[in-house]
Each structure stands twice: as C-alpha cells, then as structure tokens.
Design a protein around this nucleic acid. Structure first.
Lengths: 347, 347
DNA sequence: CTGAAAGCGCTTACAG
DNA sequence: CTGAAAGCGCTTACAG
C-alpha cells in the first residue's frame, strides 16, 4: 500500500463544511444528495461553503453507507485484446464517467476460469456491475452474472440459445451488405466472400449478410463464390489463392476482417494482378493497416464508440436486476470507401 | 447508481466469521492483517472459517479506516492513445493486481486542464497514486503531483529540466543504434535517418542514437544524411522523396517511427524502386502495420510490457513520498528484423 | 426544513 | 494472545 496523500491538512469532511456554513452535517449531506429538501437560500450558502473549502465526499465512507461501489468493472484479457481496446476503452471510460461512476480495469479471461476475478470484485464490494466484451460463443459469464442478480451489459452476443441480460452489438450482416452493395454499384458482378470457418459468431453473421445482399441485388446463384479461411493475413492469402483459381475470376473479394483482406491483397499481388484495379478488396474493422497499405483498404467500420456508450446507458436503464429480460441493440456499422474498391477493370 | 448485489444473504462480515470460528472480530482481522500475532492453531481455525464462508473484507470499510484506497489511477486521453494502449494497459493492469491493488481508469488529457481529474480522484479518496504515460515535453503533471506529495511513476520522460518523481523509459537512442548497426552489418554504408522536427522528446533521442551509431561505426560525415518530417505516413513519404533525391542515394533509411517507415516504403515504391531490395527501411514501434505490409518491416520494438511492470514496482518502492528523488530506469528496446532490411542490392 | 443518533464494516491502540 | 471500545466519513430514518 502506498502513502496516499501526505500533504497539508487533508480531510475536509462533512463536519467541517457544516461548521463553515453554520448548519448541521445532515443538511450538507442533503445539499449534495437531495437539494430539493433545502430552502434555496440555505442550499446556496452550503454550496458556497462546499466550493470555498473544496469539499469532496469521501467515496469509501459513502460506499460503505450506501452499499454501492459506484464503479463498473471491465475485464481485460491478459494477452491483450487484439486492437479493439484502443477505440473501445477511452469511449467506455468516458461513458462511465458521464454516468457518474468509475471504471475499474481488471485482468480476466472471458473463459470460465476468469469468473473468479468477477466474483472477487463483487464480494469485496469494489464494483456493482460489469461491462462484458470479447464475448466468445457460449460465454458463461452472462448466465453466471444474471443468476446472481448482478448488473451487467454485454458488448457482443453469445450466439447460442437465450442470451441473459442486455446487449449491444454491431449489425455485422448489414455491414457486409453495405460492402456488397457498394461493389455492385461500382459495376462488380462477381463478388466473392472470404469468410471464416463456419460456426456461431459475428464472422458467420457476415457470411449471412453477403448471401442476403447477393440475393437482394439479384446476382445469380452460379456467381456466388465463397471461401473460408482461418482469420489472419496468412489465411486470407491462402483463401484468396483459391478464389483466384475460379474462372471466371471474381472481380471483387469481400473479406470478413481486415487481416483477411490484407492477405487477399498480398495474394492478388503475388499473382501479378493489381489489388483494387484487377480485383477489388474490402475488409472489416477499419484497423490501422487499412490506411497503411496501398491501395488503402475499403472497410466496414464498427461503431465501437457508440457501442461503448450504449452499453453504459443500457446498464443505467437496467437498474432493476435483469433476470430474464434480454434487450438487444443492433448498431449499424459504416462503410469506409477507399482505393481498394474502384470500378472493375474493362476485361 | 446501479442495484449492486441483489442476491441472497450477501454480507459475510468479520462478525460472522468471528462467530463461526469462535473468536472475536479483532482476531479475525489479525488473521488477515497480522497473522504472526495469532497462535498457529487459532490462525488455522480462523482461516478455515474464512474459506468456508467465502469471506472477503469489504474494501470500502477497510479503506475508510486505513485511509488508503488500494487503487492506482491511470488517465486515458479522451481521443485514444495511438495504439499504445493495447500492449500497455493489460500489462499495467496485471502488474497493478500483482502488487495488490486495483487499477482505476479515468479520462484526462496530459495537459494542464487534465489535472482537475487527478485532483478529483485524490480528494474523493478513490486512488492513492498514479501511473503517468503519454508524457509530453514540459508535462505539468509531475511537478503538480510531487508538490502535493502524491505517489506516482512516469512512463516516459519530461525531457526538460529536473524531472520530479521516478520514471521508466525505453532507451530510444539505443534502439536506433541497434537498427543502424544491424544495417551496417548487412553491408549498408549510406544509412539515412528519417527523423521528426527538432525539439525535446523521444524522437530527438532517436536522432542522437543514429548520430552516435554512425560515428561509432566510423561512417564518414559526408555520408550522414538526415531529413526531418512530421510524423505520419504522409510525412514519411515526403521526407523520403527528399532522401531519394540525394546522390548517391542512401541504401537504407532508418525511420524514427513505423508510420514514417511506412511512408518511406510508399515513396520508394512510387519511384519504381523496390523497398527492402533497393532501399532498406526500418521503423520504431512494432505496430500491427509492420507485418501487414510487404516487405514486412524491420522495427525497434519498445519494451512496453516491461515498462508497465517496472512503473508499478517503482511505485511500490517509493512508499515514502518522493519530493526530490528522481530515480530513472532506461530499458533496452529490441530490434525485430524482418524483410525490409536485407543486404544492399549490388550496384 | 433542521438536529441528534444510529450504523455501514473494518482496523487499531488499549487493557486484560 | 485475546476482548471490549473507539472511530474512519458518510447517509438516512426519526423526532422536533
């Protein structure tokens, strides 16, 4: 434990403020927690004293009394979160503060072993709710928390059975749909999908979006070209190699992640073709690599900041412990059009 | 405020444990905080009760009594932290937990206005120390905190005058030196530097490292080629264009950031030259783009995780408020060699 | 609308 | 080594 504030006469307490304003402690407390109970003139006098003395209620005393921590917990996977943290955390932190609480960061895997960390925080009274992200299919955290009546919101879906508790997610299918429609409007007709191995999750929802868009646009079934690859640059490269073997070759490849899209760019280049010009490419995520690579990658940008904000708002609304209610919120991603998706080259 | 734990009979208090073990509350408290004061047999009995009942001391009650929050604060810039967060935060979080505290995230700019957030946290008693990062030259936070006797560590230096408080930093000069030596060992002799506009800071330290390495290696002064550009892909592209106009052309470009290096790759390509083969390139940061681009970028990887660990350790050691002591720790970066720095092409 | 009082759960001198 | 007591700073019924 550290030394804390060693400085000059530290604690300005309720008592001190009361003395300064010439009222009782109770009145000062009311000025803070129930201003309506005070006569306007008294209220003003107390507020002046508070300001003059720079009084801040001690959070621990308050929490001890009210039995509310006033803090939200967010579990970070030990290894890092794969680039998401950089947009998500500042937004989550800000949203939490706007709702009048603190954000406590802690280390916990999303897997079952991670639950002990959630349990600890709860039983020490350090937090009174959680924001969950990096949800894995079949995540056990939601049921565990809901069963204990703990407030929480999920950023991302479980993708299996009933999902306990409120959640926010990006409309992944709609994002891919936007990419397909964009390519179609640019004149592309053979729009292949570079997906991930089948299984419940956001990646599969993107495959659904592609199917839906192709059908809506009226692309004949024979044109539907789909390859699945393990997410990553290497996977994208291998998957694209297969797609490029098809004849006629697709003129556009819609990848379900930026890394897959990047792999596609490399595979296209290795064939002696020009990414963008000969084969258009789009990704998902709007990661830093999109603008680093040439041609700059068209991508589906997920509404990460908005998801963070909504997650906290849902938490506020779910003041009543949510046992069965399952309010979901689907947020539209945004298509960021860059150089990798021009009109197709004349044959 | 949220509902908190609504579940079954929540609070297992000291009192309950004492009753279960057949001792007084004081004894249970001692079992936790001063086990040496108990007879071994009593200690064991109490510990069994604690385990059986799943007792966890209420943090707020404890903090109220001990006047120590048991938490560290880390201020996040509202806009995001430019890719650093993804490696730094998990490491910082883990290190904080290992030292027995919690990590509180909050929103605050590194500038002077940000100080109110630090002040708030302190006066509410929410944290008893801070870890500072994203230090800007002439950062006011250090002096402000030191003056108040607040415990803190800085990740990164102020680069101006005396720096109050302990700090950790990467040895930026040494990192660039390693890059230059590596290129030299591969046969390069015209090793240009792509730096940032002059001014105190890590970027300038990298320029120093380049100079030092060139001198140590014995490169003649006429070979020293230096251009300065605003950090970013566009800046790197413009700066490299200048470097490539020199004759004879440099065979290698050492950039002081990955983004500058990336810009260099683009500029080289636009000249019809092959990055890596015709002109070698290295960066700093080991960001995601390094492996996304072809050729994969050789880069100086900063010891972010180690810096986080050390920062917390320094904080532990600085139990006594540091007013004038200024213990600095310089950590060696690691050169990651990839495809962008092969031997020079035969002329 | 205000004042005196109890109590949240813990730690820490202080006697035994 | 243990037990009874005070008190950290706050909130919240409860009388006036």
């Amino acid at each position: 434990m550290s030394g804390g504030l060693a400085g000059l006469g530290r604690s300005v307490t309720l008592e001190v403020v009361a003395g300064h304003a010439g009222v009782s402690r109770q009145t000062v407390s009311n000025a803070l927690n129930a201003p309506g109970k005070l006569r306007p003139e008294t209220l003003r006098r107390v507020q002046e004293s508070i300001a003059a003395l720079g009084y801040r209620p001690d959070r621990h005393a308050r929490s001890l009394r009210t039995r509310a921590a006033g803090a939200l917990g967010y579990g970070l996977a030990p290894g890092g979160s794969g680039g998401l943290a950089d947009r998500f955390l500042p937004a989550l932190c800000h949203a939490t503060e706007m709702s009048g609480r603190s954000l406590l960061l802690f280390t916990a895997r999303p897997s079952r072993e991670g639950l002990v960390a959630y349990d600890e925080l709860l039983s020490h009274g350090v937090v009174d709710g959680f924001v969950l992200s990096h949800v894995v299919p079949g995540d056990t955290r939601h049921a565990w928390l809901a069963q204990r009546g703990v407030t929480f919101t999920s950023v991302g879906r479980i993708w299996s059975g009933e999902q306990p508790g409120p959640w926010v997610d990006a409309d992944h299918a709609a994002g891919i749909e936007a990419a397909v429609r964009h390519l179609h409007s640019r004149g592309h007709r053979r729009i292949a999908l570079l997906g991930c191995p089948p299984g419940p999750g956001a990646a599969e929802d993107r495959v659904v979006g592609w199917r839906r868009a192709c059908r809506a646009i009226g692309l004949p079934d024979e044109e539907l070209l789909l390859t699945r690859a393990v997410d990553g640059i290497a996977g994208g490269r291998a998957g694209t190699a297969q797609l490029l073997d098809a004849s006629p070759r697709p003129t556009a490849i819609v990848a379900v992640s930026d890394d897959l899209a990047l792999g596609a760019v490399h595979a296209i280049t290795e064939r002696g073709l020009r990414p963008g010009l000969d084969v258009a490419v789009s990704g998902v995520g709007d990661s830093a690599v999109c603008t680093a690579v040439r041609p700059a990658l068209t991508t589906v940008r997920l509404p990460i900041e908005e998801m963070a904000r909504r997650a906290v708002r849902l938490l506020d609304e779910a003041a009543v412990p949510v046992l069965e209610s399952s309010a979901g919120l689907l947020l539209a991603p945004e298509l960021i059009i860059r150089d990798s998706t021009p009109p197709p080259a004349a044959p």
